[in-house]
Design a protein around this nucleic acid. Structure first.
Length: 848
RNA sequence: GCCGAAGUGGCGGAAUGGCAGACGCGCUAGACUCAAAAUCUGGUAUCCGUAAGGGUGUGUGGGUUCGAGUCCCACCUUCGGCACCA
């Protein structure tokens, strides 16, 4: 006797069978325009997953959540007659692979290839309908050749403020083209992480620590490659409006870009011809400026500091320099600073105000200098209180509030020509005054910094750049791909010098020229991968233009801005990948390389799946669920359906083993609708199946299910779609004889969710072809209408009785029937009926 | 501190302003069985009541409405993001 629990249906046998079938027949291969057999009359649907980083740990249950959602949609759209593009690939450059390689001594290419094989195998065992002929890998020279090529497009372009778009550098008529390129070299204060041996982008630093590994990060000036994303700040904000993205993600991007309107004001320095420019969002408070603060790193500090203050200023500067970012932010509760001894002249009233330095003014934002208006700015108020600087009211709050530290809007006071004006009017008037008198102008500032694009790593795309006589220049496209050198020792050098600098042969380009030794960050490959899927084998271009226009939807008749039709992934990329990719896409759009301004039309974030204990899954908690185990126990179809049945896609939700078993039972019930088990334990076609028409009630369930499942798939409400199919199955479980056509319809509706079992039953029941190639069923609205309706009778809004009326009953008839219903009579006895509300088809409410 | 999202049975969750708790899990009773598993059928918010029935219920307090889980105002809690951005 076997101790192993008997399988509720033979999923293990049928799942591998159909996975092989789809593979061998390339069932889900999508043809490109121009290829034989391509049907141009069909609309296109491009549904994209965020491709995984193939880590050594393998797939976890979080990956397939989004992947199953897109798989259901792509199979559904295919059945609805669309040409569907649904690809998968590998984002395989990156730190973990390199660190693992350093630890084990294996080349990252070797471990990466192994991990990719593991991931691919796992994804295939879940039965995803990917077009595997379009698989890409960012570490493949045939791929990163084009990543390098696109980098060169950025290098060879500049942002023309007159046209508000990128143009070829050839159209730039200024002195120094290198100062305007979209990819440029600059000596900037960067986030240096000593433990990782590399610099990091602002987006990769969380609370002063590296996002990868949580190591301390310090600021230091270094010469680095930068991408001029700030040129696109406005467009990156404005063009969010047309996108079908979660509002929360749009907001995260807007806040990250951090646009603020204000004015620049120029202050003279007493007894010197230096000027200090400050940025303020409140030019209306200029009369209230009682001191000026420069960032400790401000270039003018040394020039204006008076001799008697030099020592204190230098000490303060040194102190700030040695502070880590963490110390500067975490311990920032207390304001610090020192006076320079210099005085600035307020242009609006000629008043002399002291100039201080303090680290609450940041060097990277605005002009690195502020005018302090302690009466109406919290930070200035704290600083002024601590150092006993004067506080002068210039805004009258609209209510009884105290004006001290009031930062809202009100009425200007003590402000000369602004007195009596509202804050917004005063802002406008002051900006005009500044401009007319040459003391400043309206400006816009952004929190967004240019993108630090170089890393001191081995496992990344080398820059297609060479250096000669201290100048950089681009490789030609024909010299690509530039592959990394074969190296035995690719560890960081322990200095800011990248590991590639150790590859002396590779480094040497010619007698007088050497190669750039930095590599690109992991984000480079993912900035454009969705384009390569459209045309993965193209050797001439990164994407063919006809193919691009078709799959990205430039020619589609819908009024949408185009792009990928549905993109599903986690929120962790809100200000990283999703911002970077939009930026690259816009550059390519400006340069005429792609035809749509935005890459991703509709974005959906799947929620995190927690462990069974309601905690975040982690190895240390021991609550990690491995998809392979679930599939071995219950099958891929149950795994897919359970992930979709858990709850709304976008919501965070805990895993439940009992829940998987419940869904597995549902699939077993579907199986038994079609199959009987004989004495020998073999499954044969169910004897209850018959070529009969469903009865009226059954017909209604069939059509209601067709309607609901179709609508729910479009809105990604998979949990309720499955619930409705459960209702369907519950309806037919007890039915004998059982109408064959009903089972046929159920299989079609269930196919996108549970592709293996439905394909197998389709074959077992002898239906034509394979189910994946069938057309999605349509429903008959007439079948949903019943002759008799059940109406609710309410007294004062409370349910008191129910009533069955003919669907053609008039309002008057319904009202009369309701008033005559036994319980209504009871409840209204001896009372005056004030009002009767009849909602046709729904209820009657009697107000007494 | 600022911004955002969410609070519904024992649990996951469902509900165009119109019967709160669909569907599933769990629990429970019954059928089948020598017995168990599996399967099938029924029950399952809570309080009062033998029952019929009634009261109370969607984080808290107000409001709009014939009618509020749903809309408005205030607050509480949890989660996520930003964090001296002038």
């Amino acid at each position: 006797m076997s101790t192993e629990r008997r399988k509720p249906y033979p999923f293990d046998r049928i799942e591998s069978k159909w996975q092989q079938f789809w593979d061998q027949n390339a069932t889900f291969h999508a043809l490109n325009p121009g290829e034989p057999g391509f049907d141009a009359s069909r609309p296109k649907y491009y549904v994209l997953d965020m491709f995984p980083y193939p880590s050594g740990a393998g797939l976890h249950v979080g990956h397939p959540e989004g992947y199953t959602a897109t798989d259901i949609l792509s199979r559904f759209k295919r059945m609805c007659g669309f040409n569907v593009l649904h690809p998968m690939g590998w984002d395989a450059f990156g730190l973990p692979a390199e660190q693992y390689a350093i630890k084990t001594g294996q080349h990252p290419a070797v471990t990466t290839a192994r991990n990719v094989d593991m991931f691919r195998g796992q994804l295939k065992r879940i039965g995803f309908a990917y077009d595997w002929q379009r698989e890409i890998n960012t570490t493949d020279p045939k791929y990163f050749r084009w990543t390098q090529s696109i980098f060169l497009k950025l290098y060879n372009s500049w942002f023309n403020p007159a046209t508000n778009r990128a143009e070829s550098i050839a159209s730039y008529t200024g002195e120094d083209p290198d100062s305007v390129r979209l990819a440029y070299v600059a000596e900037v204060p960067v986030n240096w992480c000593n433990a990782l041996g590399t610099v990091l982008a602002n987006e990769e630093v969380i609370d002063g620590k590296s996002e990868v590994g949580g190591h301390p990060v310090e600021r230091r000036p270094m010469r680095q490659w930068m991408l001029r994303i700030t040129a696109y700040a406005d467009r990156l904000i404005n063009e969010l409006d047309g996108l079908d993205w979660p509002e929360s993600i749009k907001l995260l991007q807007r806040n990250w870009i951090g646009r603020s309107e204000g004015a620049e004001v120029t202050f003279g320095i007493q007894g010197s011809n230096h000027n200090v420019r400050v940025f303020t969002t409140r030019p209306d408070t200029l009369f209230g400026a009682t001191y000026l603060v420069l960032a400790p790193e401000h270039a003018l500090v040394d020039e204006i500091t008076t001799p008697e203050n030099k020592a204190a200023v230098a000490a303060y500067q040194e102190n700030c320099r040695s502070k880590s970012d963490l110390e500067r932010t975490e311990l920032a509760k207390d304001k610090t600073g020192v006076p320079t001894g210099a005085f600035a002249i307020n242009p609006v009233n000629g008043q002399q105000i002291p100039v201080w330095i303090a680290d609450y003014v940041l060097t990277g934002y605005g002009t690195g200098a502020i005018m302090a208006v302690p009466a109406h700015d919290t930070r200035d108020f704290e600083f002024a209180t601590k150092f006993q600087l004067p506080v002068l009211q210039v805004v009258q709050p609209p209510t009884e509030e105290t004006w001290q530290g009031f930062t809202g809007e009100g009425t200007a006071v003590n402000s000369g020509f602004l007195d009596g004006l509202s804050t917004s009017d005063a802002k406008r008037k002051m900006a005009e005054w500044l401009e007319t008198n040459g003391h400043g102008k309206k400006t816009i500032q952004y929190k967004l910094r240019d993108w630090l694009f170089s890393r001191q790593r081995y496992w990344g795309e080398p820059f297609p750049i060479i250096w000669e006589n201290g100048k950089h220049r681009a490789l030609t496209d024909s010299e690509l791909p530039l592959t990394p050198p074969e190296m035995d020792d690719f560890r960081p050098t322990g200095t800011p010098e990248p590991p590639l600098s150790k590859a002396k042969d590779w480094l040497r380009y010619s007698e007088t020229a050497t190669r750039e030794t930095n590599t690109m960050p992991q984000w480079a490959g993912s900035c454009w991968y969705y384009l390569r899927y459209c045309d993965p084998l193209n050797n001439e271009r990164f994407i063919g233009s006809d193919v691009e226009r078709y799959w990205m939807g430039a020619d589609s008749p819908t009024p949408k801005p185009g792009g990928v039709d549905l993109y599903v992934g986690g929120t962790e990329h809100a200000v990283l990948h999703l911002l970077y990719a939009r930026f690259w896409h816009k550059v390519l759009f400006d340069l005429g390389q792609v035809s749509t301004p935005e890459p991703f039309q509709r974005l959906v974030n799947q929620g995190i799946i927690l462990g069974e204990d309601g905690q975040k899954m982690s190895k240390s908690r021991g609550n990690v669920v491995n998809p392979d185990d679930v599939i071995a126990a219950c099958g891929a179809d149950a795994f897919r359906c359970y992930e979709m049945f858990m709850g709304p896609l976008e919501q965070m939700k805990p895993w439940s083993t009992a829940g998987v078993e419940g869904v597995s039972r549902f699939l077993a019930r579907v199986w038994r609708l079609a199959m009987d088990e004989n004495q020998a334990g073999e499954w044969t076609r169910s004897a209850a199946l018959a070529d009969i028409a469903p009865d009226k009630a059954q017909t209604k369930v069939i059509h209601a299910t067709i309607k609901k499942v179709g609508e729910d798939i479009e809105t990604l409400s998979f949990n309720t779609a499955i619930a409705q199919m459960m209702v369907f199955v519950n309806t037919f479980t007890g039915a004998s004889p059982r109408p064959l056509c009903a089972i046929r319809t159920l299989l079609q509706l269930l196919n996108p969710f549970a592709p293996h079992i439905t394909e197998e039953l389709w074959e077992q029941l002898g239906f034509e072809g394979i189910i994946a190639d069938q057309t999605w069923p349509t429903y008959d609205p007439a079948a949903l209408i019943e002759d008799e309706l059940e109406l609710v009778v309410q007294i004062n809004g409370k349910l008191r009785d129910k009533l069955t009326v003919n669907r053609n009953a008039t309002t008057a008839e319904i009202e009369a029937a309701a008033l005559a219903s036994p319980r209504a009579v009871e409840w209204t006895a001896g009372k005056t009926i004030r009002k009767v509300i009849v909602v046709p088809g729904k209820l009657v409410n009697i107000v007494v």
